[in-house]
């Protein structure tokens, strides 16, 4: 059984058909990359999966570990093990990183029937994970994403991913706004979390990120459809010839 399965997903925004009969599935232990030009529906896809208000499916369905998501709210999906690393992480003024993370982790633990972590146990765990990802303690004390640099924001996203241990992670344009050094740190963080039980979907514009997070499969998204699927070599083809050639061929 696939860990994530998208079946004939159709979605309209403002009466416009954005996702048209989109299907693909991701197995345990796999990393998939979704590539596509601007306006192909990449961000819509990530919001649709995460269950943002206004991004409900017209028809079709999504399954996480065999369970249909279409009737589930965003928070239920998250607690069930779906994680979205945001392209533009949102600032929460006055909300300390540590307490935010703790609420998130404990919501997930509660859902899984595990004991909630007390403050001390949590801080210990968070520091351990943070140090592995070169995230300074100081960042956890600051308000979530407030005054963070582009690199810090993305690192904080991946830190949250590491703490929440999701089944499926969707990384939405995680490379945007990162210089090469930051890109490497973030990618290392993601790679460290790859294992046989989870899956990662990388949504990206450029091939660049896929040098660091090497996918098992690459899908080309254009005009709300997957027009071509293949291995990592497909990404290189995009890099070489651009999207236009592929789209015209499809």
């Amino acid at each position: 059984m696939s860990l994530l399965e998208i079946k004939n997903a159709k979605l309209n925004l403002d009466d416009k058909n954005i996702l048209k009969d989109l299907s693909f599935s991701v197995n345990r232990g796999e990393v998939h990359a979704i590539m596509g030009p601007n306006g192909s529906g990449k961000s819509t896809l990530s919001y649709m999966l995460a269950g943002r208000d206004g991004y409900e499916l017209e028809s079709g369905d999504i399954y996480l570990d065999g369970q249909s998501l279409s009737e589930m709210e965003a928070d239920e999906r998250a607690r069930s093990g779906l994680f979205l690393a945001f392209q533009y992480p949102v600032e929460l003024p006055g909300v300390g990183g540590m307490s935010f993370l703790r609420e998130a982790v404990n919501s997930r633990r509660k859902f899984l029937g595990e004991d909630e972590l007390d403050h001390l146990a949590f801080v210990k765990e968070a520091r351990k994970v943070a140090s592995k990802m070169s995230v300074k303690d100081d960042m956890l004390k600051r308000a979530v994403n407030v005054g963070f640099s582009g690199g810090e924001k993305k690192r904080f996203e991946i830190l949250q991913m590491a703490m929440l241990k999701p089944k499926v992670s969707i990384l939405d344009e995680t490379d945007s706004g990162l210089d090469v050094d930051a890109l490497k740190i973030v990618s290392d963080g993601v790679n460290a979390q790859r294992n046989d039980d989870n899956a990662i979907v990388v949504i990206t514009h450029y091939q660049r990120l896929l040098d660091y997070i090497v996918p098992d499969f690459v899908h080309i998204l254009s005009d709300g459809r997957i027009i071509k699927s293949g291995g990592p070599e497909l990404a290189l083809e995009v890099e070489k010839n651009g999207y236009a050639g592929l789209i015209n061929a499809a």
Partner: peptide
């Protein structure tokens, strides 16, 4: 903002938790 709310929900917090967190952040000073 809807963005703030969605961000919190996506981390598994329910709407009330999210609101309370954002509001308490607002009042922190």
């Amino acid at each position: 903002s809807e963005d703030q709310l969605f961000y919190c929900l996506q981390r598994g917090l329910d709407t009330e938790q999210a609101t309370s967190l954002i509001v308490n952040g607002f009042c922190k000073e």
